[in-house]
Design a protein around this nucleic acid. Structure first.
Length: 581
RNA sequence: CGGGGCGUAGCGCAGCCUGGUUGAGCGCGCUUGAUUUGGGAUCAAGAGGUCGGCGGUUCAAAUCCGCCCGCCCCGACCA
């Protein structure tokens, strides 16, 4: 490819509204342009990268017996109504009507459509297992698109679905996918971690996320370096030291707390209590019902855990006015002692605690001497708190957890029979009995692989593409294309490299060397061949590795071999760093 | 949706508070010519703008007011 007639609109300055590195560099390197909030056009350079990523995914899916499909992005409402998700997906789903007024939507994911095919066509256990996948555009009307290409409303997803006769079959399919995912991310050169995850709206029994550690990510994961425990904080638990409470009081005792609004206020209050002796009372509206949620004062609620524990489809903090009306006090003086009209859900860390302090449901009053189990009628004890760095690992003795930010690039689910039952996808088993198909579902965010590679590998000059997904392997840069011998040598090299199956971008622009070097660095091509006057006189050129800046001088007739060697070395480097950390 | 910010040439910005001397400006980029040519050259001459939109106030609006649209960031969602 010749740069002079290839479209790479590089930018010297960083566009003002790009915050994360991958967004800035994708824009500057002429890879993407924004069309609307969370909607991006991929220009030729980015499309080459995405194509390479998709090819790696394809190869690994095919290797475990995956069959590639291409399903519609436009779905009739009926199948979503059948699975129950027409309601569940709420505002996140793009909905539209056709000319007759029939409801349609743009596909957010494809459990429904694949299951519809499965139920119509799969009849016998003999046809199982099936591994079906596609690489296709998904639409999600995100409440807040952000971070460039990391969180968007239209994106490319590899989604796969497995269909098995039983749970043992699913275990194998799930494991195959898991291993394929490892190979995919390894081959793309990503450093990633596999964590236990919440299944959320997808449903099912078990799920794992593939996470790239980066501050650009929006997830928080808890890691134990001692035993390797890793979980999304939506799921992670931890060990806490025992608290000695003493005897407490025979019954809760109210006391005035003027001006106290927060846990912190009550800690500082003369008659107050340290946060770990307080009960934090939160009022949530869960599926339309006011619910009290109790945690230790110094603990933080994880809303996903609350949603998972209650099966909530709609969940929000109560408004001050509705809380006042229901409980008789505003937030700041809320408590659950004596409350029977509302459901009370408590975090396990409160179990057995005595002599605690909590709001009295009377503004500016609190109760002390509260024995949680004696004084509060808790209807559900469960894990609700968000783990923090430094807490004990739930899996091993000596370890402590570290919480870090991460970006989700893949998610695998054991769905079980959720969709096959709601949509009636069954087969006859060996005994001739009709049984629901046991399903799994598996997703990869293709653009997120591209973006996280940039987050992981860049420097102040630009992108450093991992060789396996680089848009071109080599950039060929004559210092001065106006000099006849340089131009001719570069042309010869270009022909030779192209014939040698090297993906080469020939920077044949009549620009000054500095401009071409800066652009080459910015767009991150792994190997640069510089054709300059001094070396050329000796019949030589320079090969520079973008990642290390190492340069070596090579004779013209040895370039092809040297390039092959460097490509192999860079490939190897990224396969090796790109293993699980 | 709640909170904050922004919208002036392809990109980055100034001007707005205190309306008119601004025929809307600066840097980069772009076009043409010359000189240059190993890390974003220099000089010269140019092209490029509904100041997000609509309405209002005013003799006069990029500037003041209202509504709308769009974008970014922080919070609740996910690949």
């Amino acid at each position: 490819m010749r740069w002079s007639n290839y479209f790479i609109p590089t930018l010297r300055e960083t566009p003002a509204d790009a915050e994360v590195v991958s967004h800035q560099l994708l824009l500057r390197a002429g890879c993407i342009r924004q069309l609307a909030a969370g909607v991006y056009s991929y220009l030729p350079l980015a499309w080459r990268v995405l194509t390479k990523i998709m090819n790696i995914i394809r190869e690994e899916m095919d290797r475990i017996g995956g069959q590639e499909f291409h399903l519609p992005a436009l779905h009739p409402a009926e199948i979503w109504r059948e699975s129950g998700r027409w309601e569940v997906m709420g505002e996140n789903m793009f909905r539209l009507k056709d000319r007759r007024g029939a409801d349609l939507c743009l596909g957010m994911t494809h459990e429904e459509v694949f299951t519809a095919i499965a139920r119509n066509e799969l009849r016998s256990y003999k046809q199982l297992p099936q591994v079906w996948y596609q690489i296709q555009t998904k639409f999600r009307d995100e409440p807040r698109p952000r971070s460039g290409v990391l969180r968007v409303r239209e994106f490319i997803m590899k989604d796969a679905y497995t269909f098995d006769l039983d749970w043992e079959g699913l275990d194998k399919s799930y494991n195959d996918q898991r291993e394929a995912y490892c190979r995919i991310f390894d081959r793309c050169g990503l450093q990633y971690i596999i964590v236990q995850a919440s299944s959320g709206a997808m449903g099912g029994s078990e799920s794992a996320e593939f996470m790239v550690l980066t501050d650009a990510g929006e997830d928080h994961i808890a890691l134990c370096h001692h035993c390797g425990y890793a979980a999304n904080t939506e799921k992670a638990t931890s060990r806490l030291p025992e608290v000695e409470d003493g005897d407490g009081l025979p019954r809760p005792e109210p006391f005035p707390t003027p001006g106290v609004r927060t846990i912190k206020d009550l800690e500082d209050f003369p008659d107050g209590a340290p946060a770990e002796r307080q009960i934090k009372t939160l009022a949530y509206v869960i599926n339309g019902e006011l619910t009290l949620v109790l945690l230790r004062g110094d603990h933080e609620l994880n809303e996903t855990k609350l949603a998972d524990a209650t099966g909530a489809t709609e969940l929000r903090p109560g408004h001050p006015e509705e809380i006042k009306q229901a409980l008789g006090a505003y937030p700041g003086s809320l408590g659950a002692v004596g409350v029977t009209k509302f459901r009370i859900i408590a975090d396990r860390a409160l179990k057995g605690r005595r002599n605690m302090v909590t709001g009295a449901n009377r503004d500016e009053y609190h109760l002390r001497g509260v024995d949680v189990e004696r004084d509060i009628s808790v209807s559900l004890w469960t894990d609700l708190r968000t783990v923090k760095t430094g807490e004990g690992c739930p899996q091993c003795e000596g370890g402590t957890l570290e919480v870090r930010k991460a970006l989700e690039v893949g998610h695998i689910f054991k769905l079980g029979t959720k969709y096959s039952e709601s949509m009636g996808a069954t087969v006859l088993n060996e005994e001739g009995k009709e049984v629901p198909i046991v399903m799994g579902s598996y997703g990869i965010g293709v653009e997120r692989i591209m973006a996280s590679a940039i987050e992981l590998y860049h420097d102040e000059d630009g992108i450093i593409w991992p060789m396996p997904i680089a848009p071109f392997q080599v950039i060929l840069t004559p210092v001065n294309i106006g000099e006849r011998d340089q131009a001719e040598a570069a042309e010869r090299l270009y022909r030779q490299l192209t014939e040698g199956q090297i993906e080469v971008l020939f920077d044949d622009r009549d620009e000054r060397a500095g401009v071409k070097f800066k652009d080459a660095d910015l767009i991150g091509i792994p190997v640069r061949i510089t054709v300059g006057p001094k070396r050329l006189k000796e019949g030589q050129v320079e090969l520079t590795v973008r990642r290390t800046r190492e340069t070596r001088v090579v004779a013209l007739d040895a370039v092809l071999d040297a390039v092959h060697e460097l490509i192999a070395a860079e490939m190897a480097f990224f396969q090796q760093v790109g293993s699980r950390t």
